[in-house]
């Protein structure tokens, strides 16, 4: 960990101003991801702006009939919220499938969206990694890649986004609200929020430097059977090998998004259209351009089979 300065702010305006004033500054929310990375000097902010007192930790109804989730709402509180459990079950289930109780008590909505990859080479500074050190190369390509991505990958990076929450939000068509130092606000559809690695895998989202997430909004409830299925070697406290978030309507139509396979929560609207034809068709559409490694080729049949079991559950 490099030495850094620290300040606590109490309003979004103060927060963005503080980061704008200090090049090399970063927001800190729960700190469950950022602090680990700082200890390993993978993140080296020179200044931390603590946003935990921003009072953005609530949840409220939107005029459109949806919900607005504060950026600082803890994962535990969000998963337990009655409206989320009733109308957005896939989100509650995804949250509870992630990390551990202790971590979820700290982890925030915005922090979860921005958590970084779990590629093992990203975590070991002795080895090349384009995401950690642009242009240094990708050790995973000819290294150990069992956990890593199979679709939307590039020559530069095959890492995955490890979030469970984001996969459910992708299925729910959530929108991310932000504010920047000039006071300008944006509403970014989650489909456009995370980027594919391309040749700039170190740029993971469309956020501008210093842009603050203030909330995530969910559109009005879409109903249907909502399922989140996370597949992993051990029963708890492990990142997904593959996960499936699905919303299935009584007529068999619906939406499906994948976790554990790409640099972002993976949803292809064309695959939704195939859902009523079954898992094989949906998986084929989702994985059309898959480029697995030898280590992770098993994810392709696994995706199809997991969708199949999710559909069975949804239709039961």
């Amino acid at each position: 960990m490099k030495a850094f300065t620290y300040e606590r702010v109490s309003s979004p305006a103060q927060a963005v101003a503080a980061v704008a004033r200090n090049p090399g500054a970063k927001f800190i929310a729960g700190g469950t991801n950022l602090l680990d990375l700082m200890k390993l000097q993978i993140e080296t902010p020179t200044h931390l702006v603590d946003i935990n007192s921003l009072k953005l930790d609530g949840i409220e109804a939107t005029p459109e009939g949806g919900l607005r989730i504060g950026a600082l709402m803890r994962n535990t509180d969000l998963a337990a919220d009655e409206r989320i459990r009733r109308d957005y079950g896939v989100l509650s289930r995804a949250l509870l499938a992630g990390a551990s109780g202790q971590l979820r008590n700290r982890a925030t909505t915005a922090g979860n969206l921005l958590q970084r990859t779990r590629c093992p080479y990203f975590y070991d500074t002795a080895h090349p990694c384009n995401k950690r050190e642009p242009g240094s190369g990708c050790s995973a390509l000819d290294g150990v890649s069992r956990q890593l991505g199979v679709v939307g990958v590039s020559e530069a990076c095959i890492a995955t986004n490890p979030s469970d929450m984001a996969v459910a939000m992708r299925a729910l068509d959530a929108t991310i609200e932000t504010v920047d130092a000039d006071g300008k606000t944006r509403a970014i559809p989650i489909a456009e929020f995370h980027r594919l690695p391309g040749d700039t895998p170190h740029v993971e989202t469309v956020l501008d430097p210093g842009e603050l997430i203030t909330a995530v909004t969910l559109p009005p409830p879409v109903g249907g059977k909502q399922v989140y299925r996370k597949v992993r070697d051990r029963a708890s406290y492990a990142f997904a090998l593959v996960s499936v978030a699905a919303i299935v309507q009584p007529d068999g139509t619906g939406r499906v998004a994948l976790g554990g396979v790409a640099h972002k929560p993976w949803r292809i609207e064309g695959a939704d259209a195939e859902l009523s034809r079954g898992a094989k068709a949906a998986a084929a559409a989702l994985l059309a351009d898959a480029k697995p490694t030898r280590d992770n080729a098993f994810k392709l049949p696994l995706v199809e089979r997991t969708i199949a079991t999710v559909l069975t559950e949804a239709r039961a």
Binding site: P120, Y121, V144, D233, R234, A235, A238
Partner: peptide
């Protein structure tokens, strides 16, 4: 490669 307790999985409860 998996040299921490997030990468080296041991059974949990």
């Amino acid at each position: 490669v998996n040299h921490d307790l997030a990468g080296y999985e041991v059974p949990v409860h």
